[in-house]
């Protein structure tokens, strides 16, 4: 590097990052508080009992967790297929309406989640569709697809189409070309997109509230617990768990995209 950052920039950046992290520290701190119902600062005492309690005494945590995992897995898989198709098509082809289409593909993320949620809710109401796991997946896939699409599209733009042409010219079938040429090119971006989609789905609550009916995903369970706490530190324990679960995919996503770029 030719230059060093000046101190006001360093200060502003550090302050900004601190602002982002103090509440996270609190979440972790209050997983250890001795208070049960509501929090006060500073916490009156510290204990590690809630981790054991959450694990052994709270069977109500598990069904929401499984539901969230199920929804996130299925939505991510669907999103990876749909998003890759869309990215492959829109990265090369030039055709009439392409611009409007690329706008359509970012819409579910660019419009507030409440619109997606409320729109689906209206559709279910009009068509008398009963809420089920699939109604949640329908909503999640819609925005997860965009995340995958964005990641894979960026990769397609950087790779050249010549390899594909060469492969086909040398007599490889379409399937062979896809498996041996296209897939390796996009694999890491696809995985990164999938990871982000998974993390996004796992923590989503705004759209889910509208599409879940009476089902409880993990974030909805957390919301219920925060509003009517039986033992509130348990919520923090679960939150730490959620952070851990989403952190790993994020880390992987980062290294997948970085390695292939450098």
């Amino acid at each position: 590097m030719h230059s060093e950052a000046k101190w006001p920039l360093k200060l502003a950046a550090t302050a900004g990052l601190l602002f982002l992290h103090i509440p996270l520290g609190l979440i972790i701190l209050y997983a250890f508080t001795t208070e049960e119902k509501s929090y006060q600062f500073p916490p009156p005492g510290l204990t590690t009992q809630w981790f054991a309690k959450a694990w052994f005494d709270r069977p109500d945590i598990w069904p929401p967790l499984y539901l969230s995992l199920e929804v996130a897995l299925i939505s991510t898989l669907l999103a990876m297929i749909l998003g890759t198709c869309a990215a492959a098509a829109l990265s090369r082809a030039r055709f009439y309406g392409r611009n409007s289409l690329s706008l359509l593909f970012v819409l579910p993320i660019a419009l507030p989640g409440i619109i997606t949620g409320m729109a689906l809710r209206s559709a279910f109401d009009i068509m008398s569709i009963a809420f089920s796991t699939w109604t949640i997946i329908l909503g999640h896939t819609t925005f997860c697809m965009v995340v995958v699409y964005n990641n894979v599209l960026a990769r397609f733009r950087r790779t050249s189409g010549e390899m594909v042409e060469a492969s086909m010219d040398l007599g490889a079938t379409g399937t062979q070309t896809f498996i041996y040429v296209v897939l390796p090119q996009i694999a890491s971006a696809l995985l990164a997109g999938g990871m982000l989609a998974f993390a996004l789905s796992f923590d989503e609550v705004i759209v889910t509230t509208f599409t879940a009916g009476q089902q409880t995903t993990l974030p909805i369970w957390i919301y219920g617990e925060l509003r009517h706490p039986t033992i509130r530190p348990i919520t923090n324990v679960v939150a730490i768990f959620v952070i851990a679960v989403t952190f790993v995919p994020i880390l992987f996503a980062y290294y997948f995209t970085r390695e292939s770029e450098s």
Partner: peptide, 18 residues
């Protein structure tokens, strides 16, 4: 990157209550 991503992905609801 991680310092920016961490808060982004850690339970939105619990952050608000914090």
């Amino acid at each position: 990157y991680l310092a920016v991503m961490m808060p982004l992905w850690s339970s939105y609801l619990v952050k608000i209550y914090a």
